[in-house]
Deep mutational scan, measured.
Amino acid sequence: MSGNGNAAATAEENSPKMRVIRVGTRKSQLARIQTDSVVATLKASYPGLQFEIIAMSTTGDKILDTALSKIGEKSLFTKELEHALEKNEVDLVVHSLKDLPTVLPPGFTIGAICKRENPHDAVVFHPKFVGKTLETLPEKSVVGTSSLRRAAQLQRKFPHLEFRSIRGNLNTRLRKLDEQQEFSAIILATAGLQRMGWHNRVGQILHPEECMYAVGQGALGVEVRAKDQDILDLVGVLHDPETLLRCIAERAFLRHLEGGCSVPVAVHTAMKDGQLYLTGGVWSLDGSDSIQETMQATIHVPAQHEDGPEDDPQLVGITARNIPRGPQLAAQNLGISLANLLLSKGAKNILDVARQLNDAH
């Protein structure tokens, strides 16, 4: 009898209710805020589980004197976190989706994509230029951005401005803007500013005609071990179906173009009346040469937790077992079709030249 009692006690200790789920994140304040929001949602869904947040620095956090596009290494903000995932030191990792490459290392998958916040870019102005827009900034004003995508589009749109690289986390960039006289304004992701509670610093939100956004911008991705079915089931509740389908289309477009950090590629997606609209573009580094096109596809946005595919093969690095396969494939095909259209119009040449120029500098 006593033996059975011990077995029952052991089973209770090993039951999922007692389990601590370890969540990996970057150390920056924004990353911690984003991770806290994901953990809060998981806690609400699984009140019996405990969650421990483990923060670590990544290569991208450490190399702050070089433009991201020049470092010449993929997975700048993800490699150390993936290493911890691989060694079973954490069970899942919360990322900004735009930091996750469209091809993940073997053994990993994006197990959830959370509801997207505003994906557009924002302009934050130096205190002396508050009330201005990019259009009304004085001639030769210097605007800071760490992104080739932003610089290429904005140089084309605002030729009277000069664009220079600015690195560091959000706090560091804002301090550089406010305390030094080098920059009249800087460009940042609206979602990051909003998550930090800095709505009052948003001086201008850039519309798609001015600057399309990065693939996955404004959404959070939760990376897990691809074979860890328990954790895949656990994080599945975080999937937002519309965000998922938009981001599958965007990531398929980028992957098929073979774009990345070192080339200016941008997108804009919208879901309306059962249609998914995808606009994508590529630019030369100075913005003088560009190709942009829009395509659409009829896609039914499923309700969360309709029964999805059981075999769960990944699409552009994403596993969404609780979302039907048909809409996911339709979104992926839309991204591939748009990429093929741009490639047929000469996108590869623009991107190759951009890559060579970026590598040469």
Rank of each mutant, 00 (worst) to 15 (best):
N200I: 13
V93L: 09
Y213P: 08
C261L: 00
I54N: 11
L100A: 03
D359Y: 14
P101W: 01
V237W: 03
S284I: 15
L154P: 01
I187H: 01
R325M: 01
E82T: 07
G335P: 01
G216K: 00
L170P: 01
Q296C: 02
D230I: 15
R251P: 05
V265I: 13
Y213R: 01
L334N: 15
V103W: 14
E117A: 07
S262G: 15
A330G: 09
V23F: 13
M212D: 00
D121S: 04
G72P: 13
L342C: 05
P138M: 12
H256W: 15
L315V: 04
D121E: 06
I21M: 13
R325L: 15
H126G: 11
L338I: 03
M196V: 11
K157V: 10
E89N: 13
N340A: 04
L276C: 10
A249Y: 01
I205V: 12
V267S: 05
I110V: 10
P324T: 14
E135M: 14
T102C: 04
K176I: 11
P47G: 08
D230G: 06
W198V: 10
L174H: 08
R32H: 07
S69N: 12
F158G: 08
V123K: 01
N322H: 09
E80F: 02
A31W: 01
K176Y: 10
E293T: 03
A67F: 00
A55K: 07
D178T: 07
A151K: 07
D240E: 15
A297M: 01
H305I: 14
V267M: 15
H256A: 15
L232W: 08
A303I: 15
L161A: 05
V215D: 03
Q332S: 15
D99R: 02
K176W: 10
E52G: 11
G259V: 06
G287M: 13
P119E: 06
I21F: 09
L30R: 01
H256F: 14
L64A: 15
A44G: 12
H239F: 00
R149I: 05
I248K: 00
V103Q: 15
R173F: 01
E82S: 10
D121Q: 01
Q229R: 12
Q153L: 07
M56I: 14
A330F: 07
V316F: 12
V143T: 05
R195Q: 04
L234M: 06
I187Y: 02
L148G: 14
Q50V: 02
S37W: 13
T58D: 04
P159L: 09
A152R: 11
K43T: 12
G72V: 08
V93G: 08
K227Q: 09
G326L: 03
H120E: 14
L338F: 02
Q356Y: 05
R325I: 15
L42T: 04
I205Q: 15
L341V: 10
N169K: 11
E179I: 15
G192E: 08
T78H: 05
N333H: 15
E209I: 01
G281L: 08
P138E: 15
T109Y: 04
Q217C: 03
Q204R: 09
D359N: 09
E162M: 10
P119A: 12
Q356M: 00
P324I: 05
N340S: 08
P138A: 13
Q314T: 10
W283C: 06
R173P: 01
I166A: 08
R32Y: 14
G111S: 07
G24Y: 00
A214I: 04
S96T: 01
Q50C: 00
Q153I: 04
Q29T: 09
D230W: 13
G236S: 12
V353L: 09
K98T: 01
V222T: 01
A219S: 08
G317S: 04
D286S: 08
I110A: 01
E82R: 08
W283R: 08
G308I: 14
E162C: 15
V224D: 02
V94S: 01
E89I: 13
P313K: 09
L357F: 14
Q328N: 01
A252N: 02
N322I: 08
C114T: 14
E86N: 06
S75L: 11
E179Y: 10
Q314I: 06
F51D: 07
E162I: 12
K87A: 12
R156M: 14
R19I: 12
D359M: 02
D230K: 09
I110Y: 04
V267F: 14
G216M: 02
G280M: 01
I166V: 07
V282M: 08
A252P: 01
L315F: 15
D228P: 15
T145S: 11
V93H: 13
S28Q: 00
N349Q: 14
P309E: 03
G197V: 06
R22D: 05
A191Y: 03
A303P: 05
S37I: 13
F129T: 11
P127N: 00
L342E: 03
C211F: 15
S57K: 00
G274V: 12
A226P: 07
S284P: 00
S147D: 06
D289Y: 11
E210Y: 06
I323T: 08
Q153S: 08
P101Y: 01
D311T: 05
D273E: 12
V93P: 03
G317V: 06
M196Q: 15
F125I: 12
A214M: 14
H95I: 03
A122I: 03
R325V: 04
V39S: 07
G24E: 00
H83D: 12
V94E: 03
P159A: 12
A320R: 03
L97D: 01
G221H: 05
N322G: 00
R156P: 12
R22Q: 10
E52Y: 11
V263M: 06
G192H: 01
A303D: 15
K27Y: 08
N88P: 07
V282K: 04
L342Q: 08
A303T: 12
R26E: 00
S344E: 13
G168T: 02
I323M: 05
P159K: 10
P208S: 09
L285K: 08
L188N: 06
E293A: 11
T298A: 09
R32S: 08
T102V: 06
E209G: 07
T102W: 02
V130L: 09
P324D: 15
K345Y: 14
G280A: 14
G218H: 01
P105G: 12
Q314C: 12
Q29L: 11
R22N: 10
M196W: 05
N118D: 15
L193S: 08
D286P: 08
N200R: 03
L276P: 02
